[in-house]
Write a protein that binds this DNA or RNA. Structure first.
Lengths: 359, 359
DNA sequence: CTGAAAGCGCTTACAG
DNA sequence: CTGAAAGCGCTTACAG
């Protein structure tokens, strides 16, 4: 019932081979022939059958993007950008929600899925690169979070967590804070972005001549508002409050601010707070919350480019860093802020655009 | 290089036909044969090639879900639920972000996409059902928003916007409000959910013996925080402030609260505010914002069921309603609220679960 | 209950 | 520059 290539060929008075050539843009086709074929395609509203194409060529035209949690605005934003980025290169993006469960991540990577995708971009939470390496089903894989990827043979795109975290911490120091807490390592999960951010945090404190007090490093169950709320409760219960908190994402910062304000603390007078991801919710919070922003456009662009490069040109996997910025707002500066304004932090950093670090 | 059905057949000492029968669960297979086949499958780690299956059967195993905007938490939540729901029925969910552009919506429905999906669930923003009807590419389509679907032949799943909006408005009346504004119709877009919510709003006001003041109906450019901010600015500029606002989603409510508080208004003492979607951001706002919640689990479950029913059993399209609830919080009641608590509104409503209204 | 064979709709060496 | 033909890996009437 649907129109086939053969119907187009008959309509245009050529062989199917020629129709295929026109569609796939092969050179050396007589302009007149090409025109006739194109007219026939338009007239019959012919659309090639993707399954037949895939069966024949082994190429699917689909990139996978596996995210742990779409309710994190960071991933929702990234998914939107990736969809666009993939479309520009002629691919469709297939989104997979793993909920951070190891089983789901495993399934995406090694299960049925590889067959319906040409490659996968993933932000692993439960699985570490070693577990992913073998199982990628032979398809190219690009990693987005970090999980001790330094020594992994897999491709990786992300921000330099150490530098960015140091920059956030330094910002707190420069606004006069001395007892700075860090909230965000996830209980029971070691390595990954969190440990790099802790490195940056400790490094900046040491450079500023401040002591590192391990009691001020607070773990959370999840990087969500409830986690931030619980962390603030723990800090309050411990007494000897910090005068600033570096939160590993905005949701944690929001929950923490909630609990702090509930306890009568003023932000930033009593407690400065900085988050991570630069979500709209942080910009619209009262007071507006300072945040570290990864350049998500670059992230989407580079990771899709890296994946397509592996797929189409067999490029070797490499590690790549994207820019980050510090958005200083009321929760650290005390200065009024209206959503929509962009206030670069005093010591914001930007890595040179094609910051490629070959492995 | 990958293992094919024929390899499994040879390993098990049967014909490909038998392997296919075992995989597809055909009856009347000798248990001993089935066991041998299954062992061979496991041993060789055979996975059927989906493209070949699709080419042969015409069935893809993929459901599409087209959303206008993943940064709306409502859609992010729905996407997560739908993914799970689809997986339970053996389908993969393909997410498409249309950004509410007519062109993108058209493309999803009529473009290349229908060939890679068995059916589509979509929340149209720019296109009305009439435009969608012809173009569905012959594949089943389930609509999620409303766009004057009452008379559309397309399947529809959603909340009863009239009833829910009336309920929200009545709640404001019952907490003593008399000048109640409605913020949310999108400028230049007529019909759809917004006009139904306006109907419910007017209906409730009239029933309460209050006059409907059309100057209190405020349009927005988009249903986002900026839209709410601008709407509040307009209300402030107009003078003669309302004492309550019914916002058509939580983002608008959040932007509106921001602007109201910036102007020195106290919520709810000076202005009561209720939103729609019951997002976490509304629960964690200060004060916590009351909201109308559609039962998203039901929505996901019913819409996937309706789509799969059309695909697999050729069921006729029908209109179906899911339950909604009113979550009364500080922004209307003035009572303290801690995120995580569930406070049903005094006049919350729930439609009987299988609320099917055949067309 | 299972084999041998055709065909889903493409692409692509192989000829001309 | 274009035709005729094979084959990608499945499923399924058709026989037995």
């Amino acid at each position: 019932m649907p129109v086939r290539q053969a119907d187009v060929a008959k309509e245009a008075g050529v062989s199917p081979r020629t129709v295929s050539n026109v569609i796939n843009g092969h050179p050396h086709i007589r302009p007149e022939t090409a025109r006739r074929v194109r007219e026939a395609i338009a007239k019959l509203r012919y659309v090639p059958n993707p399954s037949a194409q895939t069966l024949r060529t082994g190429r699917v035209g689909i990139l996978g993007f596996a995210v742990p949690d779409l309710s994190l605005p960071y991933f929702a934003e990234l998914a939107t950008l990736m969809t666009r980025e993939a479309a520009e290169r002629g691919y469709t993006l297939l989104l997979d929600v793993t909920s951070g469960r190891a089983e789901a991540e495993q399934h995406v990577v090694s299960g049925l899925r590889p067959r319906v995708m040409d490659g996968l971009i993933m932000s692993p939470l439960a699985l570490c690169p070693e577990q992913l390496t073998d199982s990628a089903g032979g398809k190219p894989l690009v990693l987005l979070g970090e999980w001790g990827v330094q020594k992994s043979p897999l491709a990786y795109v992300g921000v330099d967590n150490v530098t960015a975290a140091a920059s956030a911490t330094r910002h707190l120091v420069e606004t006069g804070r001395r007892r700075i807490a860090a909230v965000g390592p996830v209980r029971g999960r070691t390595g990954g972005a969190a440990s790099q951010r802790l490195d940056g945090y400790r490094q900046a404190l040491t450079e500023a001549g401040l002591a590192v007090d391990e009691r001020l490093v607070v773990e959370v169950d999840r990087l969500d508002r409830e986690g931030g709320q619980a962390a603030m409760a723990a800090l309050l219960a411990a007494g000897d409050l910090p005068d600033a908190v570096f939160c590993f994402n905005d949701l944690v910062a929001i929950g923490l601010c909630w609990a702090a304000q509930e306890a009568g603390l003023r932000i930033p007078a009593d407690l400065a707070v900085i988050g991570w991801d630069d979500t709209p919710e942080a910009r619209w919070a009262r007071p507006a919350i300072s945040s570290v922003r990864a350049d998500t456009e670059q992230l989407a662009q580079r990771s899709v480019a890296a994946l397509v490069g592996q797929i189409e040109h067999d490029e070797p996997p490499r590690h790549e860093y994207v820019a980050h910025h510090l958005r200083a707002r009321t929760s650290t500066t005390g200065r009024p802020y209206r959503p929509g304004e962009t206030v670069e932090g005093p010591d914001w950093e930007r890595l040179p655009p094609p910051a490629v670090r070959p492995r």
